[in-house]
Design a protein around this nucleic acid. Structure first.
Length: 360
DNA sequence: TCTGGGGTCCTAGGACCC
DNA sequence: TCTGGGGTCCTAGGACCC
């Protein structure tokens, strides 16, 4: 199945997902500030994955260093990230959604687009919320849109546990005066570059000269940002299971690596882990990427297409060590990452591509 | 304040060929 | 001696998302 456009797109987003799952299995945490991040040790180099609403009241945000978070909320309970549990709960949620007879496009652990042709999408949204709550005791918010962009942007207005509709009719009224960074796919850098051209709000982006955007961002991204400003986009919902283009492993070391021997040992370990991930999918590696973050904060990447696709750990490791030979000698290494791109299975690359990166 | 780990996609520019 | 224009492939780096 390759997906089709729907009359309505629903964007379902679980509220404070990781923190909510932790509270479910430890009911005594209900109502308390809860922070999920790293290994649960706020003295380590790690960041917040999710904070409960009570912790957010202290100014804790996801992506914030754990050390800073506990300074803001000293009484918060800090818990380690438990990926396997969240994945199990996520599967249960997605199965529940599929059980409602809608087309489900999974976006992440706690998010999905639903394709709906009903006359009353809010009624479907409330049915979705009730079903998810009954099956998992988790609350979710639902954005209703006439395409995926509007549905995705609508969800935030429904939080927590609500429903909000955003269509061509009310897009500018609701979004027009908001800063461009509120758009899905516009981050701090792009919003700054837009501001240089006098584009600070969504309405200004919607009215901006396409030539200016294309000159600044290129033909593809310029056109994309122009559409984003108007809320235009695809209403195709596709339930084809996601096939990863590659796998990577990254480690930030609690103490920087200094000697060539410890760096090589770390690279061999990462290469072996990545290789195991590609083996598990039974697809050969076509390209390897090495990412190095030198202390304190300077990142380099090196990549290399392999002469031929390979399944050999020795060849993958050799390519990684080859790339590592260009690393700067004598500098302390804070982070190492090894990423492997794999061949795509036949017909696995015909999905609709969106310049919003990283959804899966 | 000091920045994780899992990803994807886009662009610029160099090398090379005709 | 001075050197166009188009295409493709590849790498490095940037930006964004959850």
């Amino acid at each position: 199945m390759t997906g089709r456009p729907f009359r309505w797109v629903l964007h379902v987003d679980l509220d404070q997902f990781l923190a909510a799952v932790e509270v479910l299995r430890r009911p005594e945490l209900a109502g308390k500030p809860v922070i999920v991040g790293g290994r649960g040790d706020p003295t380590e180099r790690a960041v917040v994955s999710t904070a409960s609403y009570e912790a957010r009241a202290f100014g804790v945000r996801s992506g914030m260093p754990l050390r800073i978070a506990v300074r803001k909320a000293p009484d918060a309970v800090v818990l380690p990230v438990d990926r396997d549990t969240y994945l199990d709960v996520s599967d249960h949620v997605m199965d529940t959604l599929r059980g409602l007879g809608v087309v489900v496009q999974v976006l992440g652990w706690d998010e999905a687009f639903l394709g709906v042709d009903a006359d009353d999408p809010e009624q479907v949204a409330h049915r979705v919320q009730a079903a998810v709550l009954a099956a998992t005791r988790l609350h979710c918010s639902v954005g209703v849109g006439d395409n995926k962009i509007r549905a995705k942007n609508a969800t935030g207005f429904g939080k927590p546990a609500g429903v909000f509709r955003l269509t061509a009719e009310n897009w500018l009224a609701v979004m027009g005066e908001r800063p461009t960074i509120d758009l899905w796919g516009v981050g701090s850098r792009i919003s700054q570059r837009l501001a240089v051209h006098g584009i600070a709000t969504v309405a200004q982006l919607a009215a901006a000269d396409l030539d200016v955007l294309v000159a600044e961002f290129g033909p593809r991204m310029g056109t994309w940002y122009s559409e984003l400003g108007r809320g235009d986009g695809s209403a195709v919902v596709d339930d084809t299971p996601w096939v990863a283009r590659g796998h990577g492993r990254e480690t930030t070391y609690q103490r920087n690596l200094a000697t060539p021997a410890e760096i090589e040992a770390a690279l061999r370990e990462l290469a072996a882990q990545v290789h195991a991930d590609t083996e598990a999918e039974d697809r050969p590696v076509v390209r390897v990427v090495l990412k190095v973050r030198y202390a304190p904060f300077f990142t380099q990447t090196r990549s290399k297409k392999l002469p031929a696709p390979t399944r050999s750990l020795e060849e993958v490791t050799a390519a990684v060590l080859d790339l590592a030979a260009t690393m700067e000698p004598g500098r302390e290494v804070r982070l190492l990452g090894v990423h492997a791109e794999m061949t795509m299975p036949d017909g696995g690359d015909d999905a609709e591509h969106t310049p919003v990166r990283g959804h899966f």
